[in-house]
Amino acid sequence: MRTPSAAALLLALLPFAAMCFSVPLWDRIEPRLLGLPFNFAWLIGWIVLSSVCMWAVYRIETRRSRGSRAA
């Protein structure tokens, strides 16, 4: 099975770093964003950013597979 590129994997690790491993850094109430507690708002923001990351991964990977098919 063709392994994904390093760039794609790094981009995909970003949501993991932000939403999972860094929890002690953002698990607090203040500063409130749009009235929401900070931890809640942080996760909502990263749901959207994760989708952006995956869009970039999609672009990278489809370009690669098109390249390898042409070769």
């Binding site: 949501p15 993991f16 939403m19 999972c20 990263w46 749901i47 994760s50 995956m54």
Partner: peptide, 10 residues
């Protein structure tokens, strides 16, 4: 729950 669902798609 918010974190795991998002990361599952990743």
């Amino acid at each position: 729950i918010l974190a795991y669902l998002t990361l599952a798609y990743v």
